[in-house]
Amino acid sequence: MSNGADEPILRLENVSKSFFGFLAVRDFSLDVRRGSIHALIGPNGAGKTTIFNLATKTLPPTRGRIFFKGTDITARSASEVARLGMVRSFQISAVFASLTALENVKIALQRFRPDGFAFWKSSKVLHALDDRAMALLCDVGIESYAHARASELPYGRRRALEIATTLALDPELLMLDEPTAGMGHEDVGRISDLIRTVARDRTVLMVEHNLSIVANLSDQITVLARGERLAEGTYDVVSRDPAVIEAYVGSEHHD
């Protein structure tokens, strides 16, 4: 639209959010560079998820403005933002529990079809999406679960399914809210590899609690504490920052 590659894909401008007088996010600004993996980290209660929810328009900001691809999206709805190409995942894995893994991915693919309101049209026509959905399940390595109900998948695989469903929309900006939360060691490795793969041709903004996970994954790290920015830069820069070390004292950073 405007100055191409240098323009940040997502920009938060002096955004604040208060809940009943409690200021969860204070005058926060952020630029996410196109094509990067950007991590938002901080201790519990730092406001990571709130910022995430503000950016995806799940929550309205109290003050400030939000731009996506140069367009002011401050007044847009969450589903509009998703259609513009910013698609999010959830901290508590969000799948359609009563549908099979394959059907979950097809729900996302169905958005490109004009028959979403066609209550007279048999859902059998959706078999046309099977191959594409199956390919997406293969991409995240859960094709063997295609016909299992989402509620029956092991936790790690459910996160993978959620990512496959998100990728089905081919979003320009992929928003991941603690993608490895509550996972075993093996699954964490698998998801990290997956994020690296999918980030090849898109931008990723992820919220993460654990600094060591983002260490070798992200290009840029923003550290938050008490709703404000503490530090920003590459892992080497932020991990040596005395303010960051202080905020993380006693937490899992020193491993």
């Binding site: 969000a94 079809r113 028959d115 049209k121």
Partner: peptide, 25 residues
């Protein structure tokens, strides 16, 4: 059992997720 009904099932299962996929629920 229509294409519409399939989306309703998704919305019933997880409305925030359906919104995040871009559906005007």
């Amino acid at each position: 059992n229509s294409t519409f009904g399939q989306l309703l099932k998704a919305i019933r299962d997880n409305e925030p997720r359906a919104i995040s996929l871009g559906y005007e629920v």
